[in-house]
Simulated assay, not measured.
Amino acid sequence: MENLVTRAEWGALPPSQQWRALPRALGVKIHYEGREVPADLARPDQHHRCAARVREIQAMHLADPVQGWIDIAYNALVCPHGRVFEGRGARRESGANGDRRLNRAHYAVCAMLGDSGLTEPGPALLHGLCDAVDWLRERGAAGPQVVGHRDGRDTDCPGEPLYRWILAGAPRP
Rank of each mutant, 00 (worst) to 15 (best):
V78Q: 12
A111Q: 02
F85I: 04
G128N: 08
P123V: 11
A111C: 01
C110M: 15
R83C: 10
Y74G: 03
A132N: 05
N97D: 06
C79P: 06
R83N: 14
R101A: 13
C110L: 15
G114I: 04
L125A: 07
E120G: 00
C130G: 15
P80L: 11
L125P: 05
L118G: 00
R88Q: 10
E120T: 13
A108V: 11
N97C: 11
L113A: 03
S116Y: 05
C110T: 14
R104S: 07
L102H: 12
V109D: 08
H81N: 04
G128Q: 08
H127Y: 13
V109F: 09
G95T: 05
G114N: 10
H106D: 11
G82D: 05
A108R: 02
V109A: 10
D115Y: 10
L126H: 04
G95V: 07
P123R: 09
V78N: 11
V109G: 12
D131K: 05
Y107P: 12
D131Y: 05
D99L: 04
R91F: 00
Y107H: 11
G128H: 04
C79D: 15
G128R: 11
N75F: 05
L118H: 05
L77I: 14
A132T: 12
Y74D: 15
N103P: 06
C110W: 07
E120R: 11
G89P: 01
R88N: 04
Y74R: 12
L113I: 04
V133Q: 08
L102N: 13
N97V: 08
P80D: 15
L113G: 01
G128Y: 07
F85T: 03
D134G: 11
E120D: 13
R91Y: 01
A111Y: 02
S94I: 09
C130L: 00
R83G: 01
L113M: 00
L113C: 03
P80E: 13
H127I: 14
R100A: 14
V78E: 08
G128I: 06
R100V: 13
R83M: 14
A124K: 09
E93N: 03
A111W: 02
H106F: 14
L126N: 06
M112Q: 15
A111E: 01
Y107K: 10
C130S: 14
R104T: 03
V133W: 05
V109E: 06
L125D: 07
A105F: 00
P121D: 03
D131H: 06
C110V: 13
G87E: 07
R88W: 00
C130A: 15
R101N: 00
G122P: 02
D131S: 08
G87F: 02
A105I: 00
N103L: 09
P121L: 05
D134E: 14
A76P: 02
A124D: 15
A105C: 03
G117W: 11
G95R: 09
A124P: 01
R91L: 15
V84D: 07
Y74T: 02
G98D: 02
R100S: 14
P121E: 01
G87K: 03
V84N: 02
Y74A: 12
N97A: 12
A96L: 07
S94H: 11
A108T: 06
G114M: 06
A90Y: 01
F85K: 02
R92V: 06
Y107G: 12
P80R: 05
C110P: 07
G98F: 06
R104N: 02
H81V: 08
A96I: 01
D99S: 12
